[in-house]
Design a protein around this nucleic acid. Structure first.
Lengths: 338, 338
DNA sequence: CTGAAAGCGCTTACAG
DNA sequence: CTGAAAGCGCTTACAG
């Protein structure tokens, strides 16, 4: 299995040129005759030459790796949303000649502010952080002096580039959709203490109410997770709203099931809408009207942004907002004709 | 943001020793006085020294990276099983001082036998391949002369280490459980043309029937996916079996819903059992009896094995079989008393 | 257009 | 125990 690795020197020798010229040819840099270049490239393929990116990295001070950090809470616990984003990140990175080193930030790592191995070993040129990690841990990572782009979250007091969905606006329009369908008793399902994105969605919902001068009824605010993010048994209010805006599809799914189990029909008695357009929305009968996040767009822009920062590291704290759209399905009952 | 990186030379200079000694101290190698070593380590922390793993890699010919390849088909399309395995792989790798470069093999890459970027650039010391990729593509990857360990699949004619669940045996015991509950009309839901693991599960089911001299009824063989792996509408037989062994939890979930939609109660009219113990099994009411795969075990052993192969590359084709266990839930109706 | 020289930050073998 | 020398495989000036 141990076969000698081909180097640029080998190609150079077999052609009687210098490795400098080979390097130029292979990297498509000026300074090689067209004919010689072709010859070099041909021999390279023939010898099955593979560049030693490690040697290249040492010289250029670029590893060609992007580190991706996902908090353990988000990586599995039924929230495959970030896994899907990662998929597009990986594809976009490879298209841009970068590899991705994915690492999972466990709760312990966050708490103890452990520097990820890939950072300790200087193996990445930049960092993409997916899903909210604690303010303190993020501040720690920022001190590493590696370009960072946040995806789907940000902290006002930590000046870093971030790619976010327009949660506020999307929630505003989906709530408006309920209002336009005739609903006025509209609740919200979600714990606003949990993540910034949930806050934004809650506030978008509030905006829709405010705009129509519909009084917010606090008894219609229900939760599917506690302050630590653990799922809890949903407590329905004594008198239900006629519709609930849920902070995510899983919340909508769980609420839908809770309603069903208490004898309420969806959408016959209570309408529900979700967020994210993940499997949970189609796992429920009837399928849940939700907000589609442009995952692919987010990933693409994130990779583009981190590459920019790696190349010329000026500025930071740029906010990139991605639009979202309603996916109409059958979980909303129309109470009025239009 | 551009601060000069600290090197071993910097530490050496500040202490008036040579970088060779610093290297020995930092790598915990013999040949440094205990006192001096402590001093070096102290200064290193103080200066916030981070080893340049790239330089180290160039010299040692070890990147300290493990490449992980997951076929796109498995990475998202509702089969988060492999994503979960990856999580443990990553954690075990980091514990062993390896980083993981995760790459998704798209259908196109497989078809065109595209060498993953990380391999083209010689960025990994070994490869972990999760979930079945085509024979041809695997053969191509083997030619790269990198140690490879397969997870959850293998090809008889490609001699590579592989970690697999004992699908045959697990299916045999879960089918036996149905038989012991009084069922004799037992079907199988799954497409045996799709993956080797489905074949094994099908055959384990057959063994249980054979052992009890129960005649296999071909009309009880139903499918939830076509030969390309796309989910299809399940066609129930004219006369249903009283129980179905499903090749995975999603199949069980889909079959359960199909049965419900046709007016059959689960397990009142028809019992079902699944495989894998993923969310789908608890997403259905009643929860589905299934087979728990020891994901963590598989990941741990896979990482251990690839590390062994990286360290001393003798031998190959070792087969490591991981046990599995039944998780009893409520989707099986007992037809007899014991 | 072509290439000799230097150097990226380590580690390895060897000498003292 | 300590360190000078060589070298891993590239790329980057620079000289011709």
């Amino acid at each position: 299995m141990i076969t000698k690795k081909i180097t640029m020197q080998d190609i150079a020798d077999s052609l009687g040129v210098s490795k400098v010229t080979v390097s130029k040819a292979i990297n498509d840099k000026p300074g090689v005759g067209l004919e010689l270049k072709k010859k070099i490239l041909d021999v390279a393929t023939e010898m099955d030459y593979k560049i030693n990116s490690i040697a290249k990295a040492l010289k250029t001070n670029r590893t060609g790796n992007i580190g991706v950090i996902i908090s353990d809470v988000f990586f599995t616990k039924n929230e495959y949303f970030y896994t899907k984003i990662f998929r597009y990140i990986e594809m976009n990175a490879v298209a841009g000649q970068y590899n991705t080193i994915l690492t999972i930030a466990t709760e312990e790592n966050e708490l103890t502010k452990k520097t990820p191995l890939m950072c300790m070993e200087q193996k990445v040129d930049g960092l993409l952080i997916l899903g909210q990690i604690s303010n303190q841990y993020l501040a720690h990572l920022k001190r590493l002096n590696t370009p960072i782009v946040l995806i789907d979250f940000y902290y006002r007091d930590i000046n870093l580039d971030h790619i976010v969905t327009d949660n506020f606006y999307a929630s505003y329009i989906i709530t408006s959709h309920l209002i336009e369908s005739g609903h006025t008793d509209i609740g919200f399902c979600g714990n606003v203490n949990l993540y910034s994105s949930i806050q934004d969605r809650f506030l978008g919902y509030q905006k829709a109410l405010l705009e129509r001068k519909i009084k917010y009824n606090e008894s219609f605010l229900i939760m599917e997770r506690d302050d630590k993010g653990a799922y809890i048994d949903i407590q329905l209010p004594e008198k239900n709203a006629t519709a609930y805006v849920c902070n995510c599809d899983k919340a909508a799914y769980l609420l839908g099931r809770k309603l069903n189990s208490k004898g309420f029909k969806v959408p016959g008695d209570v309408s529900i809408v979700g967020f994210d357009d993940v499997e949970f929305s189609t796992m429920f009968q009837p399928n849940i009207t939700t907000v589609r996040i442009r995952i692919e767009d987010m990933a693409r822009k994130a990779v583009k942004q981190i590459m920019r920062r790696i190349d010329h590291d000026e500025g930071s704290g740029q906010r990139i907002v991605i639009g979202a759209e309603i996916v109409y399905r059958d979980s909303v009952k129309k109470l009025i004709d239009d």
